[in-house]
Amino acid sequence: MLYMKNITKSFNGAFEPVLKGIDLSIKAGEFCVIIGANGSGKSTLMKVISGEHAADSGEIRRNGGVAQVVQDVNKGTIPAMTLLENIALSCNQKPHFSFYKRHKSDAVRKIADLNIGLEQYVDHPLGTLSGGQRQMIATLMAINSGGKILLLDEHTSALDPKMQVKLMEYTVKSIDEQRLTTLMITHNMNDAVKYGDRLLMLNSGRIVEDIRGRDKVNLDARGLVALFHKYEDQNLLNGGGK
């Protein structure tokens, strides 16, 4: 479960706050998709939730640890280490003075779950894999890190369409199995409508749409795009969204 009350966040030198009084409550196991234009505050919201940035004011409560997958795979992994070493590091168990190789069979099983034939490369450096394969491993690491809240920040955007589908299928399956509370940022309206239990639209640092239940069921990607453009047009009329 994630609870936020009146969260604001601004940066030095900025004209106005990036987040302006965010109120949000997400149930355990709920899959929320965040959409919004560039600069609307999506990534800042993720960083406040993950604890990377402290909010200026407001209250935030997280029931469980936070795991995150970001667009730049190098930030969420160690390319110079092997797949096994990366997975062993992310499993978040209490460290021991025993060899990390004991995690190997578990790591192989988890990699096999990805269903892309990478298990034979468990002892290879992660940096030798393709970008898409590395992002799959980064997602696997976040999902298996023990965190109860999963943040996905455009984690499929750098991948080819086939890999995007594979990664989303794996992500959704794992989220369901582990009942993770998930927030996903995406610009892919089809994915937003297809996978999200709830859609949050951010505009100029505020949640302007919170679509769930019957409204969500009745909304298709085209409708979501139209909604997106409605706020974009408003921003233009109001002087660039600020």
Binding site: A80, M81, E85, L89, Q93, H96, F97, Y100
Partner: peptide, 25 residues
């Protein structure tokens, strides 16, 4: 031997990706 333990792995992670290491606690 130390560098092949959990603690050694975490030790090496510090030099390779500090942000990642911090996120792993």
């Amino acid at each position: 031997l130390f560098l092949r333990t959990d603690f050694g792995l975490r030790f090496r992670a510090v030099g390779l990706n500090q942000n990642f290491a911090k996120k792993q606690g």
